[in-house]
Design a protein around this nucleic acid. Structure first.
Lengths: 230, 230
DNA sequence: GCGTGGGGGAATGCATGCAACTGAGCGGTA
DNA sequence: TACCGCTCAGTTGCATGCATTCCCCCACGC
């Protein structure tokens, strides 16, 4: 079990993060960034020292994170949830279906404002340098989030956000794969076009193909990181 | 705003529920049963008195319920989340897609043990009296839960459980509709057969049709309860 | 040497007290 | 009469203290 760097750092830890963030947001960010590694036990007093608050708000944060599915009860307290290649495949299989549905429903329900938002993120995508990982990820997430919201189905959006949260536990982005950024932008363009002309079946098919490709790249990334043979 | 019956019942409320239930479970059950009505404000001290504990465990329960999406922050504290016919339609639309996926994947991945469980709940369904609402609901939920688990996709199961939780906020069951119980059992049988013979496309189609029918009945139920014209 | 029982330390569950904030009601004034 | 400000009650956010539980480890006995 890894002895993480951020905990057990003595009684006067450096508060490297924005102090205005709530303990929930800070711990969540630490889990998603990998700063708190999978399997790492989460001790309330250590986290309290780290966040500079008492145990009470930490306890609430841990309950919320437990409900999010980011941490679970191991023997003796909480621990960051483990990862597995099986899980990432399952998440993507599920996401395929929901993203395809989002595209289909968005084509039916989108408003003129939704179209403006989609076009905005397509434009931003053109301005991003292919070497700028953070920029690509931001534009990509905002574009797909705009598709979700264009579906105007709150339950669907809620589930997609939950899936995305679990996906964020896995490092790496498919967009840094050679040529993927241009291909993704092209598919985004086609998806936005289908949504604009209210072609729900096309939007469904394009979104499906888009995330099938993303899944396959993502699996390769995960194998590379864990040193597994492909 | 309704003044709920369970709160503000004085300093010595009768503990009608099992005292071993955690505050989270008790409040959750009260919301799902309608004992705590939509829109009702949730005051920590009142809930603490009701559950016979202090505010601390209540606060944790409220944070978890917030993460579940059963309650949300209104101005001045928490309140039970409101309902709407639009939401129930959106939930069912999403559920259609996920249940159809569950049927398809279950046909691919089911084990012999999964088949035994499916058959078990089909048998139980035959023994239930069509007037026994609670019995029908129990058998129905267990059968579909068995399909979910037969998919062996934890992410999918997680999302379906979340959807089901939100659906449970709405009263009534489609199974009490005339003739629906027999029709549902017949469709369950066909779904189990398709899963057994690994016919994923048939399982997909049967599950889809099953939940389209359930959605349409459910919408009628909701309209009847709220007195809306159909 | 091995197994077992007890003790100590650590972590969690819960209760309580205090501070801050907010909203409503009320009174005063123009 | 209408509007503005003040005060107080109610509620939440947070810190702290205590009890409990449980694990680990060491010492003791067989």
């Amino acid at each position: 079990m890894p002895d993480g760097g951020v905990l057990g750092a003595g009684p006067a830890p450096q508060l490297s993060r924005d102090a205005r963030l709530t303990p929930y947001e800070r711990i969540k960010a630490a889990i998603l960034s990998g700063e708190l590694a999978p399997g790492q036990p989460l001790v309330e007093t250590s986290l309290a020292t780290w966040c500079g608050v008492s145990r009470t708000p930490i306890r609430e944060a841990l309950r919320r994170l437990q409900q999010d599915g980011l941490i679970d009860r191991s023997e003796r307290g909480m621990a960051v949830r483990e990862r597995s290649p099986e899980e990432i495949l399952d998440i993507y299989d599920t996401r395929l279906v929901l993203e395809a549905m989002a595209g289909r429903v968005a084509a039916d329900r989108r408003t003129p404002y939704d179209l403006r938002t989609l076009r905005l993120w397509l434009d931003r995508g053109r301005q991003v340098d292919p070497g700028d990982n953070a920029g690509m990820v931001e534009v990509n997430e905002n574009f797909h989030s705009a598709v979700w919201r264009a579906s105007h189905n709150e339950s669907l959006i809620d589930l997609l956000e939950r899936l995305n949260l679990h996906l964020a536990r896995y490092p790496g982005t498919t967009l840094s794969s050679p040529g993927r950024w241009d291909a993704a932008r092209h598919e985004h363009q086609e998806l936005a076009d289908a949504i604009e002309r209210r072609d729900s079946e096309a939007a469904h098919a394009i979104a499906l193909a888009h995330f099938v490709a993303a899944r396959d790249i993502r699996l390769t990334l995960f194998d590379d990181e864990t040193g597994r043979p492909r």
